[in-house]
Design a protein around this nucleic acid. Structure first.
Length: 871
RNA sequence: GGCCCCUUGGCGAAACUGGUAUACGCAGCAGACUUAAAAUCUGCUUCUCGUAAGGGAGUGCGGGUUCGAGUCCCGCAGGGGCCA
């Protein structure tokens, strides 16, 4: 037998055996086994997997293999989030077709994933760019359309005037398009929206039921949905051309500050602004200036406040005869609330910035509770005259007539009551969450299945004509959407009148594709989007794993889609993911040469000189500076290619390293030393299973009747490691499970069997170790399992059960403290009563010395834990 | 600016609901085996005083609760996240 474990030979061998045996095919006839659906976020087929994928999929694979061994019927599928911009960019840059590029990448990445030994059921593979998938997505959309979950409306977008395309906020860098560098404009386009805001309350309340989600993610979603209670208030506005009693509707979260109002402000896109601008060139100019800022909140928030006085006057709702100037202001968003506000500069920072700039009054109406008399006057006059910081804290209403003396919450209620009584406002709930714009002016996406007819309007594509398939013959040599300029594709007959009509040439946001794939995996080839009974049986996903970067959008959209699919009869539950785990990133040191150029780790040699680590470039020996540890990225070149690692050490070593050391939710640092360490351990496990076979009892030998002390200690170590590792795996604490395995390995290494019972105990310990290791390093475990004489692979073996009798020791060692300081320890029978423990503790020599003759006031005995003597 | 999270040896980190702080790994040091190297094995490794036996301090900083605090509470500093 070879003394070295040969991963390069063993890994493909076992991958083939698993595939031939069909170990990972999910069976629908499960013989009453409980189901377990484990899912990792599917990748974008960029062409190569990276270490982040390896970490993500290894964690999922450990869970899948572990649950299978625990007797679950496991569903563990994989697919491709295959539509998106990079394919089109590749088409433009390298003159390849997005389709060919994408499918080539899928083939390459599938081969890479297979080389990691992941237990996917590949018969369920889906790619979102397959018509079989996106055709069903189109069917879903039509159902949503019928159910009133879709709207078509005008919305502001970031428009790149050079590339003639819409840009996502992330694609706008310093106000310029990321590809063209052109100054981005805000432009109004008619787009398709999914009415996610109809579900705002449900999505918010549902978060409380997701007790196996990280609290952090739930909080982020809560903030994103942004429920705020406030009031709608109608301000009568005088002087609106062509209107006799125009009422401006505003939304505010602070109706308690109405007495501090000093102006009203409209969004540049408010209908009133638009109608005023029609014959006002100066206002048109102002609107244009506002539109150059971009659409992101951040851009708008950080831009300097700008205003345009319309000359209109709004009448204060509570103060007879008082009027407020009406401005158009760049910081008021049409998308939030009603697109119009009243401003109370004393208690809102943006309002204050604006008021100071345009010399508008600042009227304090809330003061901190503890301020009285002269102090209160000083506070109020400072805020009114000078301060540049608005007071947004809690306090007591002042200068507010009937509200005076009330705290903020009570004043809000009182103000709303009064507004409602006067019929000029009402309490209302507003959400930050906006409807989801899903139109993209791109080729490589799912075509939106509607047809525009001049006479009949916008109509759904008839179902029998689905899927609407993307044409292959497109070119990318001009800016804009290739679908739009395709000579024939968009020209169709109107399904209603038969006249000439055109297809919608926009495609879906790729987040649509990933909002229901988890459901499709349960019946990947069904002729309907889902098979209801099947999807209801498998979902929710028991454990979903992916990056924290999807904490909001993907997870929120999926939760919305699930509700929309329930409403349209495709499934019958609300929450798609019962358990969510967000794993940390894979980081690496960075290296720079003397010219400041980044050097990849593959071209680095590290030595230790006088205790300090020194790096040089392998290719020319030039010294290189070791920089900070950062997320692996192309720009810093600190990337380690999984293929290189697998070629050098094997997949199991990479898997083991990804699970060791750092807790899974935290970032992990990839290092050569760490990889070497993992590799050494694979060899150590192999030696444990194959060296000195004469030290192991024959396979299947009956358990001896009795064991010696050392033998019992080894058995205890094995069963305790098993119990602890099982608990760790149940709770996704892979790093701790790894530590248990090392502890057990150390116990096995330190044991030399001296009797048949010893040999039996050693085999038991080694087999338990191999079985704990099996989900994490499956190929190595198979090879060892086979060497140990097993006929069936370990993948088919049941998870071992720890013997409870071996988990507890007969005696325990407990600490003895005097006045809370540890002075000695005491080994005593586990079931000794308190008096016995106390007597034994007081009898200890070191304890006596520490007490030093002082009177003992109190002795605290916590059985099995500690004794504390208070003197 | 608001809310939330984190801070433990040279490094990554353990420590279940308050109960022996530093398990396990990495790096380092010493030794064994070897002609030598690699590989492997054994031991040491929080700081500090001490030749030693032994003592003292110690989980970012300052306080508090408790017989007892890495863990709970208050304040501060540094790092990170989300929302503004």
């Amino acid at each position: 037998m070879s003394t070295r474990y040969n991963a390069r030979a063993a890994e493909p061998k076992w991958q083939k055996i698993w595939e031939e045996r069909g170990d990972f095919l999910t069976r629908e006839d499960a013989d009453g086994k409980p189901k377990y659906y484990v899912l990792e976020m599917f990748p974008y087929p960029s062409g190569r997997i990276h270490m982040g994928h390896v970490r993500n999929y290894t964690m999922g694979d450990v869970i899948a293999r572990y649950k299978k061994a625990r007797g679950f019927n496991v569903l563990h599928p994989m697919g491709w989030d295959a539509f998106g911009m990079p394919a089109e960019n590749a088409a433009m840059e390298k003159n390849v077709h997005p389709k060919g590029w994408t499918y080539d990448n899928i083939d390459a990445m599938r081969a890479q994933l297979k080389a990691i030994g992941l237990s996917f059921d590949w018969t369920r593979e889906i790619a979102t760019c397959d018509p079989e998938y996106y055709g069903q997505e189109q069917a879903l959309f039509l159902d949503f359309l019928e159910a009133g979950l879709v709207s078509r409306k005008k919305s502001m977008v970031n428009w790149d005037p050079v590339d003639n395309t819409v840009l996502a906020n992330e694609q706008v860098i310093d106000g310029r398009g990321w590809r063209s560098g052109a100054v981005v404009e805000r432009r109004e386009l008619t787009q398709w929206f999914l009415k996610i805001s109809d579900f705002a309350d449900e999505l918010l309340e549902g978060l409380d039921t997701l007790d196996r989600w990280p609290e952090k993610v739930r909080l982020m979603q809560r903030n994103w949905i942004g429920r705020s209670e406030g009031a709608k208030v109608f301000f009568a506005v005088d002087g609106v051309p062509g209107e006799t009693d125009y009422r401006l509707e505003i939304f505010t979260t602070r109706p308690d500050t109405l007495y501090g109002a000093s102006f009203c402000a409209l969004s540049p896109h408010h209908p009133l602004t638009q109608s005023l601008a029609r014959d006002n060139a100066a206002l048109q100019d102002f609107i244009r200036k506002c539109d150059q800022i971009g659409t992101s909140q951040e851009a708008i928030e950080t831009a300097e406040k700008m205003g345009f006085d319309t000359g209109l006057k709004a009448r204060h709702p509570f103060i007879e005869g008082k009027t407020l100037p009406v401005y158009v202001a760049n910081f008021v968003l049409m998308e939030y609330g009603t697109g119009a506000i009243f401003a109370c500069p004393a208690h809102d920072q943006r309002d204050l910035d604006f008021a100071r700039k345009y010399k508008l009054p600042v009227i304090p109406v809330v003061a901190p509770k503890d301020k009285e008399g002269a102090e209160l006057d000083a506070f109020a006059s400072d805020l009114a005259e000078r301060s540049t910081d608005a007071y947004t804290g809690d306090g007591v209403a002042i200068n507010s007539e009937f509200l005076n003396g009330l705290d903020v919450a009570s004043a809000k209620r009182a103000a709303i009551e009064k507004l409602e009584a006067k019929g000029i406002g009402q309490g209302t709930v507003n959400y930050r969450l906006r409807d989801w714009g899903i139109s993209r002016q791109r080729y490589w996406g799912c075509p939106i299945p509607v047809i525009h007819c001049r006479t009949c309007g916008t109509l759904p594509v008839p179902r029998e004509q689905l899927p609407v398939i993307l044409p292959d013959d497109v070119n990318f040599d001009a800016p804009g959407n290739p679908l739009d300029r395709h000579p024939t594709w968009k020209h169709v007959d109107c399904p209603k009148c038969g006249g000439a009509a055109t297809r919608e040439t926009d495609t879906f946001d790729t987040f649509v594709d990933s909002s229901w794939y988890f459901a499709r995996f349960t019946a990947p080839h069904a002729a309907t989007p889902t098979e209801k009974a099947t999807v209801d049986r498998w979902l929710p996903v028991d454990q979903y794993i992916g990056g924290i970067e999807h904490a909001i959008l993907h997870l929120l959209y999926s939760r919305f889609f699930t509700r929309a699919m329930r409403k349209t009869g495709h499934l019958s539950f609300d929450e798609p993911f019962a358990g969510l785990f967000t794993q940390g990133m894979v980081n690496h040191e960075t290296y720079r040469d003397d010219k400041g150029q980044w050097v990849p780790p593959s071209d680095i040699e590290i030595e230790t000189l006088d205790g300090a680590r020194v790096a040089r470039r392998t290719s020319d020996g030039a010294p290189v500076e070791i920089g900070s540890v950062e997320k692996m990225s192309k720009s810093k070149k600190n990337i380690v290619d999984p293929d290189d690692i697998i070629a050098k050490y094997g997949a199991d070593t990479a898997r083991w390293f990804m699970l060791s050391d750092s807790p899974p939710e935290r970032d992990v640092q990839w290092s050569d030393a760490g990889a070497e360490g993992a590799w050494r351990f694979t060899q150590r496990v192999w030696r444990m299973a194959t060296e000195k076979p004469e030290d192991l009892a024959a396979p299947g030998e009956a358990m001896p009747a009795s064991f010696g002390e050392d033998e019992l200690a080894l058995r205890r170590a094995a069963h305790q490691a098993l119990a602890a590792a099982t608990d760790d795996l149940d709770n996704l604490r892979f790093n701790r499970a790894v530590a248990r395995v090392y502890e057990l390995a150390n116990a096995v290494s330190g044991f030399a069997p001296a009797s048949p019972a010893g040999k039996w105990a050693k085999r038991e310990a080694v087999e338990i170790l191999i079985q704990i290791v099996a989900p994490m390093m499956p190929h190595l475990a198979e090879e060892c399992w086979e060497a140990l004489g097993h006929k069936e692979p370990v993948v088919a073996a049941d998870w071992p059960v720890a013997d409870r009798a071996l988990l507890v020791e007969d005696s325990v060692t407990i600490a003895v403290q005097v006045n809370g300081k540890r002075r000695d320890e005491l080994t005593i029978a586990r079931d000794a009563d308190k008096e016995t423990v106390e007597r034994a503790a007081l009898a200890l020599e070191k304890v006596g010395k520490a007490i030093d003759g002082k009177p003992v006031r109190k002795v605290i005995v916590v059985p099995g834990k500690i004794v504390n003597i208070v003197v």
